[in-house]
Computed example of a mutant assay.
Amino acid sequence: MIPTTMTIDTIVSLLNDKIGADYVRVDATGTPATLVVNHEKLVAVCTVLREDASTYFDMLSCVTGIDNGVQAATMEVVYNLYSIPYNFQLMIRVMLPRENPAVESLTHIWKSADWLEREVFDMYGIIFHNHPDLRRILMPADWEGYPLRKDYQHQEYYRDIRVEY
């Protein structure tokens, strides 16, 4: 039976039934509803959210990164999901170590993950394992570093270009 309403509690209950506990927690501090997921269970969680008729998150609208800084020694990948049939928005956050941050690609679940993951890689240096074409998308191919990291040192890549208005 397909429920007419979806809540964060029904989602967590479904995930606990299908995958097991101790991999996800609810962050109730903001909007939309947010799950903090262990990076090792990300693919399993997203597969259930996409495939199960009671949730059917058919749209991955955004993927972004967060650098929590050198002192925190963590980074995050944030996924914004949307279920069109249920008119429900869900955010998933995955915590990663700042040194060698990596997580599995979700391109086999949502095609829109392709360029979104490339942007996060390009700006933050987060690796998406099994991505079909993980290369720079915004910065030049020979760019060094990741511009949105908090410890990024600016390059003078374009110092010889003059723009006149």
Score class of each variant (00 low, 15 high):
Ala102Met: 09
Leu96Val: 05
Ile126Val: 14
Val78Leu: 11
Tyr157Pro: 06
Arg98Thr: 01
Tyr158Glu: 10
Cys62Asp: 10
Ala73Asn: 12
Tyr165Ser: 08
Ile92Ser: 04
Arg136Tyr: 10
Arg50Asp: 04
Trp110His: 06
Arg136Lys: 10
Glu119Arg: 09
Asn68Cys: 10
His108Pro: 00
Arg25Phe: 10
Met123Ser: 12
Pro101His: 02
Leu60Asp: 01
Glu104Ser: 15
Trp143Ala: 08
Gln155Glu: 11
Arg159Asp: 07
Asp22Val: 04
Ile161Trp: 04
Asn87Thr: 14
Leu60Phe: 05
Thr4Leu: 14
Arg93Asn: 06
Asn16Pro: 09
Arg50Glu: 03
Pro32Lys: 13
Thr10Tyr: 02
Tyr82Thr: 11
Val120Met: 08
Ser13Trp: 00
Ala21Ser: 14
Trp115Val: 14
Pro97Glu: 06
Glu119Thr: 08
Val36Glu: 14
Glu117Cys: 09
Leu49Ile: 09
Val78Cys: 07
Ser61Gln: 05
Phe88Ser: 11
Asp52Leu: 04
Glu164Ala: 00
Gly69Leu: 05
Ala21His: 01
Leu134Val: 07
Val45Pro: 04
Lys41Trp: 00
Glu144His: 04
Cys46Tyr: 00
Leu42Gly: 02
Gly30Ile: 06
Gly20Phe: 05
Tyr56Val: 05
Tyr124Arg: 01
Val77Gly: 09
Gly145Ile: 15
Arg159Ile: 15
Asn38Gly: 02
Asp58Ser: 03
Asp27Gln: 11
His154Met: 13
Asp151Pro: 04
Tyr23Ala: 12
Arg149Asp: 06
Pro85Val: 14
Ile161Val: 15
Gln89His: 15
Asp114Leu: 13
Lys18Ile: 03
Leu35Cys: 04
Ser83Asp: 11
Met75Pro: 01
Leu134Gly: 07
Glu144Cys: 03
Asp67Leu: 12
Leu15Glu: 01
Leu134Pro: 08
Cys62Arg: 06
Ile92Glu: 02
Thr4Gln: 15
Phe57Glu: 02
Thr64Pro: 07
Thr31Gly: 00
His39Tyr: 10
Glu144Phe: 02
Leu49Val: 01
Pro132Asn: 07
Asp114Ile: 00
Gly20Cys: 10
Tyr86Pro: 06
Val48Ala: 09
Cys46Asn: 05
Leu42Thr: 03
Ala28Gln: 12
Thr74Gly: 01
Thr55Asn: 03
Gln89Ser: 15
